[in-house]
Design a protein around this nucleic acid. Structure first.
Length: 257
DNA sequence: ATGTCACGACGATCGTGA
């Protein structure tokens, strides 16, 4: 069983590429971020034609998350991240599919830092910590997949000195991510590629793709029962190099049945 | 040092967010 996460940066702009990726790689579950569409603009008919059921939480212009399931309908368990009723950003969606709880996460970017956007990022990570703890306490097999906007380690970026002033590499961001892992979650790619050097994002600017100036911010966190089933994981890097591609590449885990 | 892209309101460019 394959579970993937893909920050698509605009579902309408990427639709041909997205359908092509589904057709080529056939993920059983796909968590999407940066849908950048209101609910009514979500191209559900196209996904159903491709054989996928879906749930989505859209927002005008930015944010927006979705979960696709091959030949199945995700059963929604959460439409928001608990802990702040005033937070209207569409950044969290959670569902049961094929016996696994799956969350599609679009964690706040947090730039510029310091500032209110960075404060929001850290507060959001605290709320995620609380939700993740609940899932573990209930012993629900779970995968928390998405764009975490955190570069966990110096070997998760093309140059250790790059981005040091950025919200994605602040000590507070990294500490919050490590605290989450400390609950008992497995960062799948970190486990399989402990030497680092695996990127999931290449900026549109500055020829980052051509120079391979990337970093790893799209993560799949596995609960203990799911981690025991992990057989392979990776990044569909070639999809980043295609025409009209997102700035992220799809990232996935393969689980034993 | 610089380099991009999507979205949406506005009105055929610009601000925002990344």
């Amino acid at each position: 069983m394959r579970i993937a996460t893909y920050n698509i940066n605009g579902v309408k702009a990427r639709l041909p590429r997205l359908l092509e990726w589904l057709e080529e790689t056939q993920p059983d579950i796909a968590c999407l971020q940066e849908v950048k569409s209101q609910d009514e603009g979500f191209p559900i008919a196209e996904f159903e034609r491709a054989g996928y059921g879906a749930i989505w939480h859209g927002q005008k212009s930015f944010n927006g998350v979705a979960i696709l399931a091959k030949g199945a309908q995700p059963i929604e368990t959460q439409r928001t991240l608990p802990g702040d009723p005033l937070d209207e950003h569409a950044r969290y969606l959670e569902a049961d599919i094929l016996g696994i709880r799956v969350a599609s996460i679009y964690l706040p970017n947090g730039n510029p830092q310091p500032g209110p956007k960075f404060d929001y990022k850290l507060a959001w990570m605290k709320r995620l910590y609380a939700r993740a703890a609940e899932l573990l306490a209930a012993e629900i097999p779970a995968v928390l997949a998405g764009d975490y906007n955190v570069i966990p380690h110096a070997h998760d970026i093309w140059a250790p000195a790059a981005m040091l002033d950025d919200a994605l590499r602040q000590p507070e961001s990294i500490a919050a991510y490590r605290a989450l892992l400390g609950q008992g979650w497995t960062d799948a790619l970190a486990t399989h590629y402990p030497q680092g050097g695996v990127w999931t994002f290449w900026d549109f600017q500055a020829g980052a793709w051509q120079r391979d100036h990337g970093f790893r911010i799209d993560h799949l966190l596995l609960s203990p029962a799911v981690a025991d089933r992990l057989t392979h994981c990776g990044v569909d890097k070639d999809h980043r190099g295609r025409e009209k591609a997102s700035d992220h590449a799809p990232t996935w885990v393969e689980l034993a049945d």
